[in-house]
Design a protein around this nucleic acid. Structure first.
Lengths: 129, 129
DNA sequence: TAACTGTTATACATAATATATAACAGTTAT
DNA sequence: ATAACTGTTATATATTATGTATAACAGTTA
């Protein structure tokens, strides 16, 4: 686990941790069924409190990215990732709407938008084989 | 001004207001040089506190979307909108990265992503002539 | 038995968000 | 001049979100 958190960021630690784990799954660093460090170990590694990690884990569990077994531990969901549901799509559009609005406002063309997104796509999948 | 705020949303009111104004500029509802309601009037219209509006206005001023003249009032920046600076591009990628990461994780293809974004693009620009 | 799991509970500190009230220094209209 | 309006600043308060600290519980696992 090479997860790094920015303690000075305005983004909550538990949100950063959620994002890093999802990015780990996308990059292939974290594979289906692979165990994650316990809440106490992860907290110790990151230098944060146990409950902060627990909060991130529970959000990821709620969305289906990981499974938590009471006395076993935490694993990347071995049954596969959650899908593009209509509920998720609603959240997706709500989140991306203000980003696109500001981009348009600043004169970014849809073509440039696609190019910048493609850079992010490639960067996230960089480590895949 | 037909700005609506969701007081039950987890998104801060001042953030929602910023987004609605930027969307208004994109849609053409708000044109360059056009005045915005005073902080007190806007607050009264939305049913929120004056300082909440003032906070939103000042963020928009800081980014160059509006101008605030001490005893005149608030107007959409008549000199044009801020551009796609490298600083903004950094913020853009930081914001869109976790959104794309989750989309990839859920198996959304880059083609589908573009399609969904295009829907948002069209929706935002709907009212343009 | 000891060490480890996630979970739950309580308590505390700090920051962010939002409101409430008041005053100030400049317009602008009457 | 007076009144009504601007954005701005200051102070105070309440609520929520975030993060930490400590402890205990029930169930594995070595």
């Amino acid at each position: 686990m090479f997860i790094k958190i920015d303690l000075q960021s305005e983004i909550p630690i538990y949100t950063q941790l959620q994002n890093r784990i999802i990015e780990g799954i996308v990059s292939g660093d974290l594979k289906a069924g692979e165990p994650l460090p316990s809440v106490r170990t992860m907290a110790s590694d990151l230098g944060v409190n146990m409950h902060t990690v627990n909060k991130a884990y529970n959000f990821l569990k709620q969305d289906g990215f990981i499974q938590i077994h009471r006395q076993k531990g935490v694993v990347i969901n071995p049954d596969g990732m959650p899908e593009v549901t209509s509920e998720y799509l609603g959240k997706f559009k709500q989140e991306i709407r203000p980003i696109i609005a500001e981009a348009l406002c600043r004169g970014m063309k849809e073509e440039d938008f696609s190019t910048f997104c493609q850079e992010v796509f490639n960067n996230l999948q960089e480590k895949r084989g």
